[in-house]
Design a protein around this nucleic acid. Structure first.
Lengths: 235, 235
DNA sequence: TTGACAGGTGTACATCGTACACCTACCGTG
DNA sequence: CACGGTAGGTGTACGATGTACACCTGTCAA
């Protein structure tokens, strides 16, 4: 009786609840922690129950990505194309940084859900509104690539999940010497990025700066082409 | 006896043979077809035998990527930095196109093997040799991002492995109408890219052109910064 | 002759996605 | 009120995967 009279022994499942739980789990424990079984357990339900709400794991992932995209700020008005695109992309970046797993998830899927298409369409609209030809809009969207999602492949990142024992001081010294010999330019870059303090290289990059540096470089390039009257490729 | 006297009943395993077989298999059947078990079978060997030559599957993938990188052309001499970087990146692209799985493999791994580091170091050297400060070199490498490997995330790609039944003519018509309403700018772009022939959108993009368009846009931007005497970020 | 060791084997386990048949509670219709 | 369809949750089962661990075997140096 005690059990029966409890008003809702378990909140009923729904696609939305499944997706939101998955997002929360991924936020906390990484995308690798998402399994149909684990997720079901967290929802107090048998694994197969999820399949009544999402077709399969791929669709689950797509849905999670959609939720992130829905966090993007709506377009602000009163901005010219350049400021508009810039602010939208940086807003996308903020959302993706809130959900670190999203970068990998976006990279690995190619499903064009309505949410994805909607975002792309509205970005394209910003360029068109700024006087870009359809052709030029096409090319600049390609040039932005995944940067429209607010991230760059982070070339100099720490390797993911490297949990070897930290090397001893002398091992470290020896590695550093060999590294300096084999990769002098990378060393130089790393020194520049960290102002000479190499402890924790990789964490030394200011990713936000790098992102905006590249974004502005591209936007400036776009602007120049558009002003020059670039309309479509010759031939 | 017949069996014993056969000179080599099976070519002996080696790390190299394992990796090359894996690359060939991935070339033929995609990265998804790479499993330790399948690979072992192809080599006429029990799965665990592979572990005497590669530490685990991750290392196998890293090794495969290294093989692709080793196909990149060596730096040509007599070129200025811009032509040099351009030709190296385009050479990387040719190699990656030869091994279509490599794009995904490179995106998903972050291990910096000596081969990876060597390539990055030599690219960085090209910029340094062209008069770029270490700081600027760092930033432009970030700006290139995965483009140094010769690919862009292909925003408008066909979704991978969509094997649903082809829609009927009327379904197609209805979808097209709805699409046009919801995503007018994407439609416009697609029309531009395909010169009005929408059959097989997505295949309509000239990826090579898009790649070079973006690459040159970036390289021109780099050149401009370098000429302006950009050395390091203020502050 | 011996014994170490590199390289190949066999068994076993945990984990995963998901197909399929089933049950059950509800709700609109007769 | 009876009833039948249906949405949603259950249980069992299968095949695949990566890989730990103990084992065997052939080769070669001492």
């Amino acid at each position: 009786m005690a059990e029966q009279s409890e008003p809702t022994r378990r909140a009923p499942l729904s696609r939305d609840r499944v997706l939101r739980t998955a997002v929360a789990r991924a936020d906390a424990a990484g995308i690798g922690s998402i399994s149909m079984r684990g997720l079901a357990q967290e929802l107090g339900v048998v694994p197969m129950a999820l399949y009544k709400h999402v077709a399969n794991k791929d669709e689950l992932l797509d849905g999670m990505v959609d939720l992130v995209i829905e966090e993007f700020d709506p377009p602000a008005d009163g901005l010219d194309w350049k400021a508009g695109v810039r602010s939208r992309v940086l807003s996308a970046r903020r959302a993706v940084l809130r959900h670190p797993w999203a970068r990998l998830a976006i990279e690995s899927r190619t499903r064009r859900t309505p949410t994805v298409l909607g975002y792309m369409d509205s970005l394209a609209g910003a360029f068109r509104g700024g006087g870009f030809s359809a052709h030029l809009t096409h090319h600049v969207m390609h040039a932005l690539g995944n940067r429209i999602w607010g991230f760059t492949p982070e070339l100099f990142d720490e390797p993911r999940g490297d949990d070897a024992l930290p090397p001893t001081a002398e091992e470290q010294e020896a590695m550093a010497r060999e590294f300096a010999q084999r990769y002098p330019h990378i060393l130089e870059i790393a020194m520049a990025a960290t102002d000479g303090d190499l402890s924790g290289v990789g964490g030394g990059c200011d990713e936000q700066f790098e992102f905006e540096f590249a974004l502005d470089l591209l936007l400036d390039g776009f602007e120049r082409l558009q002003r020059q009257g670039w309309v479509r490729r010759p031939g």
